[in-house]
Design a protein around this nucleic acid. Structure first.
Lengths: 134, 134
DNA sequence: TTACGTGCAAAATCTTTGCCCCTGA
DNA sequence: TCAGGGGCAAAGATTTTGCACGTAA
């Protein structure tokens, strides 16, 4: 949870590279499988450790969609997520305007709490599955 | 995941009653502890089984705040959640107006996907912790 | 040199499941 | 009667951690 100085390690940078090039919001296991192609003897524990370190240092984000495993995302700009209930894919929804900030401001005005951030996960049917259905 | 007819059971109704009277969005373990006071020999497996059944039948909702355990909520009207990063409490944020629907509609207009629902979890500092700080 | 990082395996958590007995309808 | 429900314990699944060895700075 705390931000600490990190020394270079091939494993950690490879994990970060793999995640950065993967837009599917992969689970730890999926990342492990990918990284293993480049560093065959890396261990799952190392992948967990480094993903947690990277997240604690805000280089990546944890993403919890409620499927029982943690997903990770190398995008750190504010954006929303959409989970397709048909195919399970997780997609980014870019905030075209100030929608997200507006929502947070609205809640801040109407409640006594102080909101700092919002994790928003939409559920529905993705464009690809919509086409398949019609 | 599928909705099925459920026969009456004392255990299930007690679990539902306990959850309905608890506004803290308790974890399975917290619910188990509560229910155990009324039915001392109930088993944890039964609590899991029934919470999942109740959720599948839409009588309650699962709530995933990313802390590694599932929370449950007997409120089924559309509302948002706020997790206090200081004390960990989960609070309801009532949607005063059509904010939530507006957000969903906006995304539906701007993306090719079809959004059906939104799970929104705010992070910040709750009113109680704000007072303690000042 | 030395504090941080790794691989490995064991442990810790959390959740589901099989089995046999019980119970609501 | 009998299919659904429960208790118990074992199994599964996911994640963390201790330890001895390796490595960046």
């Amino acid at each position: 949870m705390s931000e600490t100085k990190l020394r270079y390690s091939k494993q950690r940078e490879t994990i970060y590279e793999v995640l950065k090039d993967d837009c599917t919001h992969p689970s730890v296991d999926a990342i492990y499988t990918q990284v293993k192609k480049r560093i065959p003897d890396i261990s799952l524990g190392t992948v967990y450790r480094n993903l947690n370190l990277l997240a604690d240092n805000k280089r990546i984000n944890r993403l919890d969609i409620g499927d029982g495993v943690i997903h990770f995302d190398a995008r750190t700009d504010p954006h929303l997520h959409m989970v397709c209930d048909e195919c399970g894919l997780i997609q980014d929804i870019v905030c075209h305007d100030s929608t997200l900030l507006e929502l947070i401001n609205k809640v801040n005005r109407h409640s006594e709490h102080e909101i700092h951030s919002a994790d928003i996960i939409f559920h529905g049917t993705c464009s690809h599955c919509l086409k398949k259905k019609s």
